[in-house]
Each structure stands twice: as C-alpha cells, then as structure tokens.
Design a protein around this nucleic acid. Structure first.
Lengths: 186, 186
DNA sequence: CTTGACAAACCGTCCAGACGGTATCTTATG
DNA sequence: CATAAGATACCGTCTGGACGGTTTGTCAAG
C-alpha cells in the first residue's frame, strides 16, 4: 500500500507511463532489460499493477507496437495531407517522418520498436504485415524502383541513427534528403 | 562420458560447430533461443564443453561477432581487389557483399548478427567501432554524400531482407544496385 | 457494496555459470 | 623410443538467482 494506491486513480496515465518506461528500458539496457519487474518498478507501479494493464508480457510488447506504429501512422498521414503531388507522396511522407526521428532527441521510443521488432519473431511478423498493408494501399503511387530505393535509404539512415554508427553532418543529411525526394519523383 | 569424449579431439572443429549452431538457433527461435543449454545440446557437446571454449555467454556472442565480421571483412577485401577505380571502391565492395547476402539463402548467419547486434548494447558498441574504423580507413575515397547514401540504401535493403518485409523483384533489385553503383562514382 | 485499480507475497521454470571429474593429446626427459 | 607429467579438451551435476505469471489482499470511487 503506497503511492499509487492512495493517489487519485488515473489508469490511462499509468498505462501510458508503463509503455514509456518499457521503451526507455529497452533502449538503455537492450531488449533483455525489459522485464516485468524492471518495467513495473521503474514506472513506480507494482508488478501486479503492470499485469493488470497488460495481462502478460506479449500484451505489453504488442501495446508498445500499437502505440508506436499508431503515432507513425498519424505522422505520415499528416505529412501526406500537405503534399500536392500524388506520385511518391507516401514515400516522401515516410522520408519526412524517418528523418525527423533521427533529429528529435526524445523520439527514442521509436528506435526501441525496431530493436524489439528484430528480437521478437512475433513482432517481426506484425511489422511485415504493416509494410505489406501500406505497400498495397499506395501501390499506384509509390511502387516505382525510385520510391522503393528512397525508402530503403531512409531505413538505412534510421538504422544508423539507432546504432549511432555514423556521424552524419547536418548539412549532408539535408542534401541526402533532397536527393531522396528527387528519387521519389522520378 | 559419451560421443565427443571418445572421439578424436578436434577443438577447432567443435568451436566452429558451436558458433554455427548458435547462429542457427538465433535465427530460428530469436535471440532468446540462444541459451547455453540449447547451443551445447544442438552442437552435440556438453554444457561444460561449451563453457570450455567460451568462458561465458558474452564470449560466445563476441565469438559470433568476430567470426561474422571477419568473413565480411575478407569478402569486402576480395571485392576491392577487383575494382580498378579508387573513388568509392569500398562502397561498391560493401554493396556487392550486402546484395549477395540477401540472395544467398544459406547466408542467414549474417542476419543473425544484426539481430544480436541490436539487442546487445555491448555488440552495438563493437559495431560502431567497426564502422568508425572503416569510415576512417577509406575517408579519402568513400566519404562523399553519394557513397554514404549508397551504403545507407544497402543497409535498408539488408534490413528488409532480414525482416522479409518487402518482396523485391530480382530485376528491380539489380536496377537498384546499378543506381547505387552510379551514386558511388559521383 | 460492488467493482476497478492496484499491492505484495508467492510459485514453478529456466538459465548462466561453478565445479569436480575424466579422457585424450603433447612434450620433455631418460 | 618409451613413458611419465602435465596440459588440454571435454563431461555431467548442482545452485543461486532471475523472470513470467498467479493468487490473495486492500483501498478508493461510484
């Protein structure tokens, strides 16, 4: 009986807090660091509390996946609304979002997704479905080799951001982005 | 006291076998499937035998890393030897190796590396060093934005191969490669 | 007073690594 | 060359701890 037991109940807030903490832990300590004990403790909630919101660990990971892909979904839609050119519209939105990811220091929750993604075969499958759905939806405008290549390059940059493996100068970064946008139009 | 205890001793062979099995397990069951018990059993070696070759689990993972980056290293050097043009030579070799990876069905051991890489912070650091070393070594010939972009795109394709997230037609694949080679020359 | 939102103790399993041993190989010495 | 003396390559069991999940209890709000 402590803290959360006596404070005003805000289940949605606690749920969000749990997801946030899970993401942070996965970044700092690797996917292996995401244990029910660690997450619940870091979120200031008991293990039972965590399991009340997510009945098992996979539910927690799925929650993370839904949360993050949901945000990505909305960000992409937002970008697409401001793009008058049909051809390659999805690809350019994708570029915007991915590039922004690397520049926003507190967007690390996204990066965590990729890591968990690769570790968990189940989430790999969900990601494959996500990609297939979008490739299908925008097959008319974004299936050219140029678009595909641009998205692959963005993924590569994403990976580099996650691993912090390259130190890319900001101006070069922008030049690369311009080149990829050009690719999406060809 | 069985099998390997009575057969002629072949430490190097056993060591190789252990690495191979570890890679296979990681692919089939995810990183969590790489336990000392599972690896030793699948390799036909006792747990003690495994721990004789690799004093702890991290040593095993490091062994995997060394083995795979070593192979990659040699493959790249081989490719570079056959390339007369200095500018972008490393990048083109990198492209060759990465593209070949996705086409060779039994090169899946490589893919496992990436997964373990992202999961383990320690290996992430080692990978960062590997990249930094090579970027440094070929700074004179392969540091142009075009080269960087080409390598990022290759990484993205690599990721797609691992996740099996995209179904890229073989002819499109080759067209993309040609375009990336052109980028490495500009 | 019922129900949702937690707490806290507990359980079974799995896993990394330690340990004490045994079999085979290598090397040095007589 | 023979062989003793180690060094090296394994075997198989045990343990302590971590981790996912369950159960039971508690409190606050409606």
């Amino acid at each position: 009986m402590s803290i959360a037991h006596h404070r005003r109940k805000q289940p949605e807030l606690v749920r969000q807090q749990l997801l946030e903490v899970a993401a942070r832990l996965s970044l700092e300590q690797g996917a292996a660091g995401v244990t029910l004990d660690a997450v619940s403790q870091a979120a200031g909630v008991s293990k039972g509390g965590l399991l009340h919101h997510f009945p098992n660990k996979m539910a927690l990971l799925n929650g993370l996946f839904d949360d993050l892909t949901g945000k990505m979904e909305r960000a992409i839609e937002e970008e697409m609304r401001n793009d008058p050119v049909a051809h390659g519209r999805f690809t350019r939105a994708y570029l915007s979002v991915v590039f922004a990811l690397g520049e926003d220091p507190d967007a690390q929750g996204w990066q965590v997704l990729t890591i968990a993604l690769l570790s968990e075969p189940h989430l790999r499958e969900r990601w494959r479905l996500w990609v297939a759905d979008h490739a299908d939806e925008f097959i008319g405008t974004d299936s050219s080799p140029g678009c595909l290549l641009a998205r692959f390059a963005a993924d590569g940059l994403w990976l580099a951001d996650i691993l912090k493996s390259h130190d890319v100068d900001q101006s070069i970064r922008q030049a690369m982005r311009a080149q990829l946008v050009a690719l999406s139009l060809q």
